[in-house]
Design a binder for these strands. Structure first.
Lengths: 144, 144
DNA sequence: TTTTTCTCTAGAATAATTCTAATCTATTGA
DNA sequence: TCAATAGATTAGAATTATTCTAGAGAAAAA
């Protein structure tokens, strides 16, 4: 039900989380963090999150949404998944997992880590080390 | 050595390949196909291929390069690999293989299929079938 | 408080890609 | 060979995603 609760507690969770990441708990960062991290894991585009924040009555610019998403990503609170030219999602699930990408709808779904596994990984080229491995399983409507 | 050979033979290979794909062998498509498919496999961006074509004296617009790359991709002659927001490569290697992405330089390298393997793949969600699996191993300079 | 430092904003700028409408060219068939 | 036609190419405008800028605003430190 949750009608706008009288702002008694200033969203302690989000504030702690932001401070831990070395980010000032500003009004817009707190609001975005709440939308992103309270509740289930989610995949959002910057545009979607911007719309959501506005719909929730938070005044925030798109540039700030981009900034916040990148800051959260740099802080390890999220990760970015690029699926198509001009379409990237920010994923609140930073655990070990991969993705299904629905080519028809543009949606992204998690693949739990126990449902997929890499048997072998090549050595990183000289002078480099692996920072991440992304597996994207592209699926489309089964019409064959 | 190959100085501009007197246009004796009109690049039979490229023409045959285009016709097989149901594409008219026009001047620009032939030129682009030659740049892409004669010689080693390669990873190019639309911009790079456009510059190359111009440098080779072929008059072609960027829009046509995009069209051709997508047509070649649809015809199964290439595939597209998206590595970052706003950076996608077209890969002439359509065989089974995956990629290293160098986060520092933006370069893409092939990982031969025998150096990486997926032990298990999840079932595609209901009503869908897998059209491709992309594995991108992101590496960066080993400074640790 | 006051100062300092960081953040936010609107809007401009940039970059990648696609669209549009006019022009051109490869193919077809007479 | 040549005109008709279906398809391709073009420049530039339009779109979309993202980043930058410079001034105004807010959080932290003094």
């Amino acid at each position: 039900m949750e009608t706008k609760s009288p702002s008694r507690r200033p969203f302690t969770g989000a504030i702690v989380q932001l401070k831990a990441a070395g980010l000032r708990p500003t009004r817009q960062r707190i609001a975005l963090a709440r939308l992103l991290f309270e509740g289930e894991n989610r995949h959002v585009t910057a545009e979607e999150l911007h719309d959501e924040a506005r719909a929730a009555g938070v005044s925030v610019s798109l540039a700030t949404v981009y900034n916040a998403l990148h800051q959260f990503t740099d802080a390890g609170m999220m990760r970015e998944v690029v699926v198509e030219a001009g379409r990237s999602y920010f994923d609140t699930n930073t655990g070990d997992h991969h993705h299904f990408f629905h080519e028809d709808t543009g949606m992204l779904d998690d693949i739990p880590s126990d449902q997929i596994s890499l048997a072998s990984l090549p050595d990183a080229p000289d002078g480099t080390s692996v920072s991440r491995v992304d597996v994207i399983v592209r699926v489309s409507s089964a019409a064959k």
